[in-house]
Design a protein around this nucleic acid. Structure first.
Lengths: 313, 313
DNA sequence: GTGAAAGCGCTAACAA
DNA sequence: TTGTTAGCGCTTTCAC
């Protein structure tokens, strides 16, 4: 009967029909577990992301799921809320149910996670980050380069006093890398920093704080478009014109960013390609047993209407 | 050795240590598949959603994943793009890898999916919909009631010419139910319909169409906040004041809707609670083998700044 | 082309 | 408390 299901051509039509009839009458359903025990394959991988609330991760997962499906792999999703302990725990669960590989975000992890990956010899890929020397292959972009690209543009437009709105630093290497990227810009710019939660209301609050701050700025750089959207709304609420009174720049390039009024100048992070590249890398690793090379994806500056030049003089 | 892993207390400390040492040196990792074949449990369920691009589904999945984790279940995610054939195919894949239950969206499905669920005697739940007579338990809200709630409010505010912006009707029972809900409103209101893709640019295009339409409207009702956001942006672009020139109402209540300027009047759909209720229902069904009762969640009208009354006379 | 049997890695039940 | 074994449902192999 195994033959009828797996190699129908190697069975005479007569026998096949008989067996198929029996399968129907007996309501036979093959057991996935039994198949897995023999093939050694479960055909799914796990992905650990900080949250689903930010569209940037949803877009990443959409591309990841789509590309994995092409390789006949399914995707198990778990959220970590940027807590390494939760991440390690959920990773353990994913391995326990049989994940053949793991996709994690960033390079800050609980030792328990590294230990798990090492012990199980599990293919695992770190995303949203680039570091060729990291012990896992990274598939991602250079976070520092992304903010450098942004700050360089604002500085080039004549901005000398800039507010930087970013997410929590705790356990977030991406945010820290983005912060470090600002130092790469070799221009005389005064920066004020505002930390807030990465969500629309966080952006709104940060915008209020910027407006209330003692020293005026001519531009706001947000480390996420979600924050920038919140800032934009708050500015509209306060009748602050963007970009006339204040330039606004984000990082991510969400769907909304292209269509807001004004359109949001931002740095496009290629998260869809990152999802595809991650899928290809992990699927290849699982199939060939060969560790893939890191993948570096270039961020891309996108100029829209939310930024303008500072009137010189 | 099985005892050491599963019931460490029933083993003398000496033996335990010896076995644990061996486990370490041999780099032993228990096989999930072998465990599954004995327990009959794989400890994960599959969810089929139209897309991850709309935050409403991301929010649903976030709650679903969280509540499932409490029941020690993992979540496999697959996207269908509202195509019943893809849905059926991916459902088959999920069952093939051992999903213990399925969460699907709506009640329009390929017969192959129904057949699969029937044949495998698989616990399956239909979400985003309410129909106590459907052959699967539904966990969701009354889509018709949601739009009725919205239209009733707009009519109550004096609006008599209203544009309705909705997503594609093909294969989407939720959209059709929302459309049907408009008929429940017993008021003399002239409606114009605009179909577009459920995404920000879709909302923008629909807004342009509304502005270009021959007959003027005093309000726009969008069947999704994503659409309403797009409309709002387009109105800002065209210097149409909301709500002074035009009232705007959505359905969903996304995170952004509460913080836009003006805030978006909308109908809150309890998708987080729907995720939790779905998790509870499917987990209970798997554990007790007893089919759960349908769950009806009430939508909730939320009045914000994007709507106003029509000046009478 | 078909039937029979070994064996995958565990758990559970049984002796010792 | 510990060692041993049957058997879960499949795939693969080996006779026929």
């Amino acid at each position: 009967m195994s033959r009828v299901l797996n190699a129908p051509d190697a069975v005479s039509p007569k026998t096949r029909e008989k067996v198929e009839a029996a399968i129907r009458t007996l309501r036979f359903v093959p057991s996935a577990a039994a198949r897995a025990i023999n093939s050694g394959r479960t055909r799914f991988v796990g992905a650990l992301v900080p949250t689903l609330d930010n569209a940037i991760f949803a877009r990443f997962l959409a591309a990841l799921e789509h590309k994995l499906a092409e390789r006949r792999l399914s995707l198990v999703v778990a959220t970590t809320h940027n807590d390494p302990a939760i991440e390690a725990e959920k990773a353990k669960t994913l391995v326990d149910i049989g994940a053949e590989g793991l996709i994690v975000s960033g390079i800050t992890h609980d030792p328990a996670l590294d230990d798990l990956i090492e012990r199980c010899q599990l293919p695992a890929i770190a995303t949203s980050y680039h570091d060729p020397d990291y012990h896992l292959p990274t598939v991602g972009y250079d976070n520092a380069a992304a903010t450098a690209l942004a700050l360089d543009y604002l500085a080039g437009q004549g901005h000398r006093d800039i507010a930087v709105v970013h997410g929590p630093l705790a356990n977030n290497d991406r945010t820290r890398a983005r912060l470090a990227g600002l130092d790469q810009v070799d221009r005389a710019v005064a920066l004020q920093f505002f930390e807030t939660e990465i969500a629309i209301p966080g952006g709104c609050r940060a915008a209020s704080a910027v407006l209330a701050a003692h020293r005026r700025v001519s531009a706001i750089l947000c480390f996420s478009d979600v924050l920038a959207l919140g800032v934009l709304f708050e500015m509209q609420r306060n009748a602050v014109r963007v970009p006339d009174d204040l330039s606004l720049m984000g990082i991510d390039d969400l769907a909304a960013s292209a269509h807001s009024e004004p359109g949001l100048t931002t740095v496009h992070l290629p998260v869809s390609r990152m999802g595809e590249a991650s899928a290809t890398a992990i699927a290849g690793w699982i199939e060939t047993k060969e560790r893939p090379a890191p993948v570096l994806l270039a961020p891309d500056r996108i100029i829209r209407g939310s930024t303008g030049a500072v009137a010189s003089g």
